[in-house]
């Protein structure tokens, strides 16, 4: 137990911070913050952001970054939204459930394609992830804008809206989906062979490759995984807004990086935990909702996230300073 706490000290500290924030918000906004209604609201918003952040985390664990994560989400959503609109045809086409299933399938397929493009350039050509994803960001965004002419796509079955807006008792469906994603992501990243390889590649790609692991495949997998999660987040966003539009969620990219770093994943790769990111997402969501309730402009969330991001890393810098190891060059007998 002691070992466990020591190993996950960062996560426990984050959890402590989250609890403190909840208490502070509860005191600052009595009767408004610690309510079922507010938690339900946070649940609606947190899911899509959390899923994107987990998708970002796994890329950063390999030492990469995925700046196109929101754009692949929206591209996939838009294509699927158009398909759903056509198939549903204002209620005169196919029935609700098949339309939705086809829509989800299309989202996932397009997302996988986006992920494979990123993965191909990073893993097989060796271009820096930041350049690749900056480029694909423009390309995905361009395609999304091109097919929608910048406007929103809507006209889905009523049932589809339920995904993003419906609840089971008091618990939003999105929250349930989020929990499933967390569990699956946890199992895949921290307990599967691929996941272990992800950490190893992030720590030392060469040593991992030299140990007989196909690191290119591992990296490709990371970008595909990230894109599939982005597609899922896209579905939630489309459903919540009841439309798909190219510029939805644009501030999520930065926030996802911030949540990942805040959650304890090193930007250089090789470390991090899914649960760390999940707690960090909750912290950012509490700040954002708290600001909202306290009538602080929502843009201050961006400011706070930016400051937290830089602050956490600056803190790490001071903590790590002076822990350089001496190396022996010649063994003197």
């Amino acid at each position: 137990m002691k070992e466990h706490i020591k190993k996950n000290a960062h996560q426990y500290r984050l959890l402590g911070l989250l609890v403190i924030l909840l208490i502070v918000m509860g005191i600052l906004a009595p009767g408004k913050f610690l309510t079922v209604k507010n938690f339900k609201n946070m649940g609606f918003q947190m899911a899509e952001f959390g899923i994107l952040a987990i998708g970002m985390s796994v890329v950063i664990m390999t030492g990469g970054i995925n700046l196109s994560i929101v754009n692949s989400a929206m591209l996939a959503s838009i294509v699927s939204a158009m398909a759903m609109r056509t198939l549903y045809n204002g209620g005169e086409g196919m029935a609700d459930i098949p339309v939705i299933l086809i829509g989800v399938a299309i989202t996932v397929v397009i997302a996988i394609a986006c992920g494979m493009i990123n993965g191909f350039f990073v893993a097989y050509i060796g271009v820096l992830p930041i350049l690749v994803t900056l480029g694909t960001q423009t390309v995905f965004d361009g395609i999304a804008l091109n097919i929608t002419r910048g406007s929103g796509v809507s006209g889905f079955p009523k049932l589809f809206q339920k995904i993003g807006a419906g609840t089971l008792g008091q618990i939003p469906y999105t929250m349930l989906i989020y929990v499933v994603v967390i569990v699956v992501a946890y199992l895949m990243i921290e307990r599967s062979r691929w996941g272990i390889s992800v950490y190893m590649v992030g720590g030392n790609e060469k040593a991992t490759r030299f140990s007989g692991i196909n690191t290119k495949k591992t990296i490709m997998g990371v970008y595909v995984f990230s894109a599939v999660l982005s597609g899922l987040a896209g579905i939630l966003m489309t459903s919540r807004y009841n439309s798909a539009k190219a510029d939805y969620g644009s501030s999520y990219t930065m926030q996802a990086v911030a949540a990942t770093v805040l959650g304890g994943t090193s930007i250089n790769g090789g470390s991090g935990h899914v649960l760390g990111t999940v707690i960090a997402v909750a912290i950012i969501q509490v700040i954002s909702s708290g600001f909202n309730i306290l009538k602080i402009n929502r843009n201050f969330t961006d400011i706070a996230t930016g400051l937290i991001l830089v602050g956490v890393l600056a803190l790490n810098h001071f903590v790590n300073k002076g822990s350089l190891k001496k190396r022996v060059r010649v063994s003197v007998k």
Partner: peptide, 28 residues
């Protein structure tokens, strides 16, 4: 630089080449 993933523990390093032997129901 080529033999070890330094941030990781001994166990992860020692079993890196035989990871697939421990896969049970898709998980390690």
């Amino acid at each position: 630089t080529e033999g070890l993933v330094l941030q990781q523990d001994a166990e992860s390093n020692i079993t890196l080449s035989i990871l697939k032997n421990f896969v049970k129901n898709g998980l390690i």
